[in-house]
């Protein structure tokens, strides 16, 4: 039990939750604006490779981060273009982009580094320290993720852009009636979603210090689960990300006792989503105009 209640455990839970937090904020931005987004998974992947490639090419992790975010934003802008201009089904577009990201990153891995599995390593963003706790706290990418969470909560609730985004997802006709473009609002929200999900990828890249094929490992879908369980509210979604992180950290801490429980712990976010959809723990309500074109 003491292994659960230690500072090291809390930090471990927080570390695991970091990419979930950033990607879930991306999901909130896009879906609150009314654009269904299942492409978070692919966006994380693209963000990771962009960050690594940018860092290796320039020698600067900050330039790497910028490249990573730009890659994620670009992928999500394709989604926005397909859904809002091409009137593609958002689910189909999302899964196609996940496929594109999975194949495309492996292709670039071969083109850039002549390997089908991983990139060369990069130097870490934070100064090396002995303690994992201090390293996590000093890591600028950790602070960027926390900034994304706080920024999303505040921006959606208190800024003009946040109000427009929420209106685009709840009642786009009302937004249009006051002369604001629904499409433009949604495009901005999807671009922010791309930046957030790519930040999740950048965090992973700095954490693992290299890109490996398929390294997003389903985190985009866990983030999506957190968005749904959190009823599309950023604060609640963030809490569920932390809870999922804690559950996984507990599984790692208790591994010797639990054996192959690994699979079962990993199921937790998804089972929680199904339960939440039944309305057992409060009502989950998607944005009224999610996936709907304004009339």
């Amino acid at each position: 039990m003491s292994r659960i209640l230690s500072l090291a455990f809390v930090m471990q839970a927080l570390r695991i939750a970091m990419p979930y937090l950033a990607a879930a904020m991306g999901g909130v931005w896009s879906e609150r604006a009314g654009v269904v987004n299942v492409a978070l998974e692919g966006t994380i992947l693209v963000g990771s490779l962009g960050t690594i490639a940018g860092t290796l090419a320039s020698g600067s992790p900050w330039i790497g981060l910028a490249v990573g975010l730009a890659s994620g934003i670009s992928l999500q802008l394709v989604h926005a273009l397909a859904v809002l201009k091409g009137r593609a089904n958002a689910i189909v577009s999302g899964f196609a982009l996940n496929l594109l990201a999975a194949g495309g990153t492996r292709l670039l891995l071969r083109a850039l580094y002549d390997s089908s599995s991983n990139s060369p390593p990069i130097r870490p963003l934070a100064a090396a320290t002995r303690s994992a706790v201090v390293a996590t706290l000093l890591d600028p990418s950790t602070w960027l993720v926390l900034l994304a969470v706080v920024g999303t909560i505040v921006a959606l609730a208190r800024t003009r852009l946040g109000l427009r985004v929420r209106a685009a997802g709840e009642h786009p006709e009302a937004l249009a009636s006051v002369g604001v473009s629904v499409v433009a609002t949604r495009v901005v929200a999807v671009a922010v979603a791309g930046a957030c999900a790519a930040l999740a990828g950048a965090w992973l890249a700095f954490d693992q210090r290299q890109f490996s094929s398929g390294m997003s490992g389903g985190r985009g879908f866990i983030a999506l689960a957190a968005v749904v369980v959190g009823s599309w509210r950023p604060g609640r979604a963030a809490l569920f990300c932390l809870a999922f992180g804690a559950a996984e950290a507990a599984q790692i801490a208790l591994q010797d006792a639990a054996g192959s429980a690994h699979h079962l712990i990993q199921m937790l976010p998804y089972v929680a989503t199904l339960v939440a959809l039944m309305g057992v723990v409060g009502r989950t309500r998607p944005p009224a105009a999610l996936g709907r074109e304004p009339e």
């Binding site: 201009k85 091409g86 009137r87 982009l97 492996r106």
Partner: peptide, 23 residues
């Protein structure tokens, strides 16, 4: 050429077909 190019082709084809009606 890497076989991943085919994954990219399939993804792009699905994306284009899905967007075709609007375009």
């Amino acid at each position: 050429v890497p076989m991943e190019l085919v994954d990219v082709l399939v993804a792009v084809a699905i994306l284009f077909v899905a967007s075709a009606r609007g375009v």
